[in-house]
Nucleic acid binder design. Structure first.
Lengths: 204, 204
DNA sequence: TGTACATCAGTGAACGCGCGTTCACTGATGTAC
DNA sequence: TGTACATCAGTGAACGCGCGTTCACTGATGTAC
């Protein structure tokens, strides 16, 4: 089934190792200071050599972001959807924060390199829950509404609730990854309380 | 009582106009791409000329961040502390988000240029509410607790609640300033609901 | 298995660029008498 | 009010730096017969 030639496999491995080095550099010095020449230096290539594997610096960055997104989604998708929906929401949020905690570099990479979503109403924004974190969250909120757990008010419905939950969790994650990076604190406990509290609020 | 000489006043005005230009450039191209030479170009100075007013590029950036922080705090501090504490908390949060909305550049500037707080427990972190946004928030939470509005649980007390509220509001603000920048949506209404919901949750 | 050739992975040097900072300088502004 | 001098604001050219990308090249690897 594997129709790749030895050459292709070797090439793919090299590609990955270059990305690995690039990621290390992002972790160490931040995305802003990432340079193709430094990647080459670390990976024992000449700068020109990298053009065998990537079209240029930008392509390397794109590959990193893409990789980070995949890992992120995989991390969230581990939460079993069979959980009671309220528990599912809590665990989903905790996984979101945990990812940021375990991979602050990956997380900040995605965040720094975000591209603003197109000009549409949040209502119309349905990114096909398949490979999108926002989709996971929105589906869960929908289930909670259907189950009668979250009473819908005229100006605060599915989208508003989803957006609020996302904000809370994102805020928790990002403060820990930035301002509070060095703080000693039992964050998981506070985080869990915070999410529960919010869900309690949504349930009235 | 203004003892400054005309020269000093002129100098101060020039300083401010340079900062103004720098801010415009940050807005246009982001902090990463800010360059001293470009500031000079815009402000009709030679690059060397700026060294009359600032010790170097870094000093300009510091001044920008400092300025942004002052404006931010002033914006939050307008909320009258005489409001019922729950209303105060809502309005404080809304002001936080509003600032980010009105001055996304200032806001992201502060955020991008954050410096991680020192390695202490959140408990010990008391930045003297005087000129610090975190202080305003924590004082309000303290009042809510004192008034018996927020029941304190053993592992979720003043600090945890403050941190959670900060996260929620920060998350709302930052998502609007980044991913959702282009979205059409009635954010203020959702934001208000979100904050109310969370406060309801804290009040049980 | 050996040979001739094509493809491939990788190099080294050079390109032009914009950057932050320095320094000797100059003309304008202010000050003292 | 006029003059001599000191201070100041600002310049222009140069410094060395690291960057992304290009290009002609070469030795190694693979392929066909």
């Amino acid at each position: 089934m594997d129709e790749s030639t030895p050459r292709q496999r070797r090439s793919e491995r090299t590609r990955q190792s270059i990305l690995q080095v690039a990621l290390e550099l992002v972790i160490e010095k931040g995305l802003n200071k990432l340079s193709l020449r430094e990647i080459a230096r670390r990976a024992d290539y000449s700068p020109a050599g990298l053009y065998e594997y990537f079209g240029g610096k930008n392509e390397i960055v794109e590959a990193l972001v893409c990789d980070a997104s995949d890992r992120f989604f995989a991390h969230l998708n581990r939460i079993p959807k069979t959980l009671p929906v309220e528990d599912y929401l809590v665990e989903l949020g905790m996984a979101y924060i945990e990812f940021a905690h375990l991979n602050p570099d990956h997380f900040m990479l995605m965040f720094t390199h975000y591209q603003a979503l197109p000009v549409v109403s949040l209502d119309d924004f349905v990114p096909e829950g398949d490979s999108n974190a926002y989709g996971l969250l929105m589906d869960a909120v929908q289930r909670a509404i259907d189950a009668g757990l979250f009473p819908v008010r005229p100006d605060y419905g599915k989208v508003g609730m989803t957006y609020s939950l996302w904000s809370l969790v994102h805020g928790l994650a990002i403060l820990q990854a930035t301002y509070l990076r060095q703080f000693k604190w039992d964050f998981p406990t506070s985080d869990r309380h915070a999410i529960r509290t919010f869900i309690d609020g949504l349930s009235q």
